[in-house]
Design a protein around this nucleic acid. Structure first.
Length: 104
DNA sequence: AAAATGACGGTGT
DNA sequence: TACACCGCCATTT
């Protein structure tokens, strides 16, 4: 425990409503360490609190999907987001409309 | 305690 | 736009 970083990531991630997404960088910044985007992704892979944490709503800074520990990989992740109402632009998420503000 | 890892981000080609 | 390289940070081994 103690790992406040990962813990903060989960907390913030839980605030993201369905149909919205956040980037690793924004998540890291909101957690208190801008630039730790990699650490954010690691937290998802190493300890995905599963259904408790919507890790599938986390996308790259350019809106593209990077990875997913769940079944189906990024492929499943993409379809999951579409099912939630996230507007996709090819294989990229429309961050212009689907990006969630972590500050709210 | 030190080194290696990884679901990133930005820039260059 | 796609691919490659470097730099960044926290976690894991």
């Amino acid at each position: 425990m103690n790992k406040k970083f990962t813990e903060a990531i989960y907390e913030l991630l839980r605030t993201v409503p369905q149909g919205k997404v956040v980037t690793y960088g924004d998540l890291a910044k909101a957690a208190g360490s801008p630039g730790a985007a990699r650490a954010v992704g690691l937290a998802m892979k190493n300890n995905p609190d599963a259904p408790h944490t919507p890790c599938h709503r986390v996308v790259a800074a350019d809106g593209s999907l990077h990875g997913y520990s769940g079944a189906g990989g990024v492929n499943r992740k993409r379809e999951m987001l579409i099912a939630e109402g996230v507007e996709f632009y090819g294989d990229r998420v429309d961050l212009v409309t689907a990006r969630w503000n972590l500050l709210s």
